[in-house]
Every structure is written in C-alpha cells, then in structure tokens.
C-alpha cells in the first residue's frame, strides 16, 4: 500500500521569492533536509527539467542520498519531481513523486505545499536495503 504525505505552511514573502528558494540551486541547498543535516554535495536546479541529487550528512554522521528527475517546472506556482532514496551501496530504492505548489494568499503571504505521493512506506531506511521499512514500522509501533 502506498501513502501520501502532505505538508503545508504559509510563508511571509511573495510568491516569486519563495519560488526562487524552491528552484535556484544556491538557495535550495540552504534549506533541504531536517535541522541537523548538512548537504555535502548536490545537483539541485529545479528551474528546468532534468536529473537532480543530494547527498546529506546527519549530525551523527549518518549519510543520506536521494535522487530523481524534475519532470515539470511552472514558475511561480509548481514544481514536480521524482524521488528515490539510495541505500548504502548506492542502489536506488522505490520511486515516489513530489509536488511543490505555491499559492499567493496575500501580497506578502505565500502558501507552500509539499505533496509526497506514492510512498511505499512513511519512512525510509537510510543506507540500507529495501524491505526494511515495514519491519521498522513494526519496531516503532512496538516501541511506542
């Protein structure tokens, strides 16, 4: 069963500014990933269609590698791309799809919505072979 994840927030800036942060390589690299992660290398450029990747490191030295293809970029409202985690051997796992959409709420307020579609599981195992997600879901349930 696949799952979708939607996260949205309103930012205090105009739609073009936000679109810039979402699509310009030098800006994208500044915010991708949860706090505590650092991008080590990347090829992020969502202004045009084509492949992308990021490699990140967590504060505990855990390593993340994600890649995909930008399938459409419609300034200043929408970017669509594919997404796949790589395991420790570099092998790419299941592919999911991500949509960034922007909507001007007011002159200086923009709603940014991330929709992550077709996730095999809510969680991704970093640096390990697939098939682990379901097991870890079970472990997490047992732990809680």
């Amino acid at each position: 069963m696949t799952k979708n994840v939607t996260v949205e927030r309103i930012f205090e800036a105009d739609i073009e500014t936000i679109y810039g942060f979402l699509t310009k390589p030098e800006k994208q690299a500044l915010w991708w990933g949860p706090p505590g992660t650092t991008i080590t290398t990347h090829d992020l450029d969502f202004m045009s269609e084509g492949s992308w990747f990021v490699k990140m490191e967590g504060s505990d030295n855990s390593k993340f590698h994600i890649s995909g293809v930008v399938t459409s970029s419609e300034p200043p409202n929408r970017v669509e791309f594919t997404w796949g985690w790589h395991d420790g051997d570099g092998k790419r796992g299941n592919e999911s799809h991500v949509i960034f959409s922007l909507e001007a709420v007011e002159a200086n307020k923009t709603r940014f919505t991330v929709t992550h579609i077709g996730l095999e599981n809510e969680q991704a195992i970093i640096g390990h072979e697939k098939g682990w997600n379901a097991n870890l879901d079970k472990l997490k349930i047992a732990l809680n």
Partner: peptide, 10 residues
Amino acid sequence: ISKWVMDHKE
C-alpha cells in the same frame, strides 16, 4: 536503529 529511519513528514 530508529535514528536510521527518516520519516518523510519529518
């Protein structure tokens, strides 16, 4: 082990 799990929502 759970530190190696990245939740997409997170």
